[in-house]
Amino acid sequence: MSVWIRYRVSAAPDQPGLAGFGLLEGQSIAVCTGDMFGDFERTGQLLPLDRVTVDIPCTPGKFIGLWNNYHAQAAKQGLAIPAEPLYFIKASSSYCAHDQAFDVPASYDGRVVYEGELGLVIGKTCRNADLDEAARAIFGVTCVNDVTALDLITRDASFAQWTRAKSFDTFGIFGPVIATGLDLSTLEVRTLVNGRERQNYTCSDMIFSPAQIVSMLSREMTLFTGDVIACGTSLGVLPLKPGTVVEVSIDGIGVLRNTFAPDRSSPNNPSVVQ
């Protein structure tokens, strides 16, 4: 098992900082050069984790999210089991790293919900893959908070606005690392809201397994190195209040923590309830 992390080191708080990546070893980063997904070398430098800002662990060309992929959630909502993965795409401008705040534009005054999920990270180009090829194409996994502007999806009766509802700036939260070598069928996703557990479900309840997801999606679009696929969420999704801290925790990956911090001075500040 390996745990990969990307980071930035800044000389001053208002500077973007120098980017780097490496292997997380305890509370230190073993700095690497080269390509996380290919040839890399350790530099021999160890960088304390508390001296860096954690970045998104990769830069996906595509961030795909599944809907209705857990048996428990489908049963509760009375949804039919889909014959194929049902998915949407989150805009690349929505990406948000661990410990960064997420918010909404002033134009939106509706409910915002968290969705704790397992994220698959593609490690090589994948097209028309069978199940074995698809499984080998999964480089590793990460935590995802698939934030959603819930009221937008059905606002227009003629068109379900999934992409819009999922793609606000900062709504594509994933990280803090990419973990490799885990048994994905044994993983459990926990979501804590201000320290209180709201979601706790096992990935073995998926309707489509990770390999099936990658295989079936690759029949319709080429998947590239660094692409991320969020496997869908299960029970326990609720609206958020401003100032709420959301933590998505998966053993072997870690904890993805972010705060919902909309601009309270906006005249359209969301009036949401929990």
Rank of each mutant, 00 (worst) to 15 (best):
Cys58His: 06
Gly17Leu: 12
Gly61Tyr: 03
Val228Thr: 04
Thr186His: 04
Val121Cys: 04
Arg6Val: 12
Arg264Asp: 02
Phe174Trp: 08
Thr59Cys: 02
Ser215Cys: 04
Cys32Tyr: 01
Arg136Val: 00
Ile29Pro: 07
Thr170Leu: 05
Lys166Ile: 00
Met36Lys: 04
Ser2Gly: 06
Arg8Cys: 08
Asp103Asn: 12
Leu24Lys: 13
Met206Phe: 13
Ile56Trp: 03
Phe171Ser: 02
Arg136Phe: 02
Ile250Leu: 13
Asp251Ala: 15
Val144Leu: 03
Arg8Thr: 14
Tyr87Asn: 08
Tyr87Arg: 01
Ala230Phe: 00
Cys231Lys: 07
Asp263Lys: 07
Phe102His: 14
Leu23Trp: 13
Leu120Gln: 10
Glu84Met: 08
Ala19Cys: 09
Glu25Val: 10
Leu24Cys: 11
Met1Ile: 05
Leu120Thr: 08
Cys58Pro: 05
Phe174Tyr: 15
Ile229Gly: 02
Gly26Gln: 05
Gln100His: 14
Gly254Pro: 09
Phe88Lys: 01
Val144Cys: 02
Leu152Val: 07
Ala179Met: 10
Ser107Pro: 00
Leu240Val: 05
Ala12Asp: 10
Ile29Gln: 07
Ser158Lys: 12
Asn269Thr: 07
Glu133Leu: 07
Gly181Lys: 12
Arg198Met: 14
Val255Gly: 03
Cys203Lys: 00
Leu152Phe: 11
Cys143Trp: 06
Val272Thr: 15
Arg264Asn: 01
Ala211Ser: 15
Ala165Ser: 15
Asp227Thr: 07
Thr225Asp: 02
Pro57Met: 08
Ile56Cys: 10
Thr148Val: 07
Gly38Phe: 05
Ile138Cys: 08
Ala12Phe: 12
Asp109Lys: 15
Ala91Ile: 04
Ile178Val: 15
Asn269Met: 10
Phe21Lys: 06
Asp183Ser: 11
Leu120Arg: 11
Lys90Glu: 00
Lys90Phe: 01
Ala97Arg: 08
Lys124Ser: 14
Leu18Ile: 13
Thr53Pro: 02
Ala157Thr: 04
Ile178Asn: 05
Phe171Cys: 01
Glu197Cys: 13
